[in-house]
């Protein structure tokens, strides 16, 4: 499936998420119109398209930040009504952001620890005492987070405030925070924007490793076509809020509509 052929054939599962006829508008501006696609388990799906095509809006709909006026989203077989972002998180959807959205007042470790919040059940009175079950819980999760820190090779910046980190490392910490939630589905909004080649290669490796080792389904938005063609199993192309193509990378690459959209052929 994967174009570079280096990654072993992996088995894709059933439909994890199904978006049907999603339409979203702000006032008079249509951000998405009648977009439908499916995400399969263990898949790496890329959403591509020119700027303003509605890619980020699509992610925002999936994790409940925007509520589409029309259409349905079915996740894990349940068609949801209005859903809040924290409900989406509770159901195993984690994400990173186009403009890094780390918690600037905290260090790397604490930022990633926030990703474990949903899994921490002790109440605040026990936490205030920092004893017994609360301490045990804290240490267990610290260990889990340390594993992520190892995996992403960011041990040296464990205690550094994230605001002081360079861009590439911030992106990595953000990925770490999303991974800490042990998501079933990971939404990545331009994970490689503004990175140099080496950083991009590292990031690709992390994404593929996550997909391979934990079987996490990944939906990503990316502008670098080389990267998209290399790592994704499936590509959805948006233009002006409409879906213009949907298929395996090699098929999308030769699609005339897609070429037109990227080369800027006028729309009727």
């Amino acid at each position: 499936m994967a174009a570079n052929g280096l990654i072993p054939q992996k088995k894709e599962g059933g439909v994890l998420l199904k978006a049907e006829d999603i339409s979203l508008s702000f006032g008079g501006v249509k951000a998405l119109s009648n977009v439908s696609f499916e995400v399969h388990e263990h898949q790496v799906l890329a959403i591509i398209g020119p700027n303003g095509a509605g890619k980020s809006s699509m992610l925002n709909c999936i994790n409940g930040f925007y509520h589409p006026q029309e259409g349905r989203i079915t996740y894990k077989g349940v068609t949801r009504k209005q859903m809040k972002p924290h409900d989406a998180a509770a159901q195993g959807i984690a994400r990173t952001f186009q403009n890094i959205a780390l918690f600037k007042g905290m260090n790397t470790l604490d930022n990633i620890m926030t990703g474990r919040n949903l899994k921490m059940k002790r109440n605040f009175l026990l936490q205030a005492l920092y004893l017994g079950p609360a301490l045990k819980e804290e240490l267990e999760h610290r260990e889990f987070v340390e594993n992520i820190i190892d995996f992403l090779e960011i041990e040296h910046i464990r205690k550094t405030p994230v605001g002081k980190l360079p861009y590439g490392l911030q992106k990595r910490v953000e990925l770490g925070r999303a991974l800490a939630a042990e998501p079933d589905m990971l939404l990545l909004d331009e994970p490689m924007a503004g990175m140099n080649l080496e950083e991009k290669q590292d990031m690709c490796r992390y994404i593929l490793d996550v997909n391979d080792e934990f079987g996490t389904t990944i939906v990503l938005i990316e502008h670098d076509m080389g990267v998209v063609m290399d790592i994704s199993d499936h590509v959805v192309v948006l233009d002006y809020g409409r879906k213009i193509a949907d298929g395996p990378p090699e098929e999308v690459r030769t699609n005339q509509d897609v070429i037109d959209a990227y080369l800027g052929v006028s729309h009727d």
Binding site: H86, A88, A90, A101, M113, T114, N117, Q127
Partner: peptide, 21 residues
């Protein structure tokens, strides 16, 4: 602890905090 981190998360970026749960 977890409570304190969720406070700081809300303080630093409330939207991102909500999205991580």
């Amino acid at each position: 602890s977890a409570v304190g981190r969720s406070w700081m998360a809300i303080r630093d970026m409330d939207i991102a905090a909500e999205i991580i749960g």
